[in-house]
Amino acid sequence: MTAATWWALIPVAVVVLGFALRQHPARVVLFAALSAGLVGGLGVIGLLETLGSGFLNARYLLLIVLALPVIAQVEAHGLRVLAKRVVGGWRGARPGRLLLAYLALRQGSAALGLTSLGGHAQMVRPLVAPMAEAAAEQEAQGLDAGERERVRALSAATDNVGLFFGEDLFLAFGAVLLMQAFFAERGIELAPLEIALWGIPTAILAFAIHGARLLWRDRQRSRQ
């Protein structure tokens, strides 16, 4: 381990410290970027060029913004209230059970490569979170501000877990092809099917753990 190697860990330390001290994320990123440019010896122009081309190549991440006018418009006309009323009509609806069904749907569709069948802007905000909240309102003790926040956060978490541990089972998914390419470069030929199949045990485990947490949440709530 040379001094230069330890030196290269400084940007990571900046990120960890920044987030641990609850600094503004944009500031953390800014200082981490400057320190990475420094230890990487990029120079001012090199740093700016890396920032610029990196940003331009990642612009596709913002395309989801195009969904916002649609969501805002239907919400202004009462979509979230509609979602709540629908769930209000289901007796025995509980947030955990509802989110368990969503987890199954999200993970199953992602495993078939249909990753766009969900997402925080398109599904969680307009539909999933309001439905889970409406289910929580049916619980004996009602829904206070803290529990509302927890139910919303759990809705977002469920979308993430379903997506992450579903998409890896899809043969043409980027990660599967990345792994295949990595080993091919080193003279080991793996079939995409082989890699995708070995993802199944973890996928089942993820569904079991998160699903159990969701049902456990309902149970704890009903006992309080």
Binding site: T5, W6, W7, A8, L9, P11, V12, V15, P25, A26, V29, A32, A33, A36, G37, V39, G40, L42, L47, T50, L51, G54, F55, A58, R59, L61, L62
Partner: peptide, 21 residues
């Protein structure tokens, strides 16, 4: 943020952060 962090990832790779870790 997603964009800024993607850019930061590129910078980290250039600075050899991952290899050092």
């Amino acid at each position: 943020l997603p964009l800024l962090l993607a850019v930061l990832g590129t910078l980290f790779a250039k600075a050899g952060v991952g290899d050092a870790l």
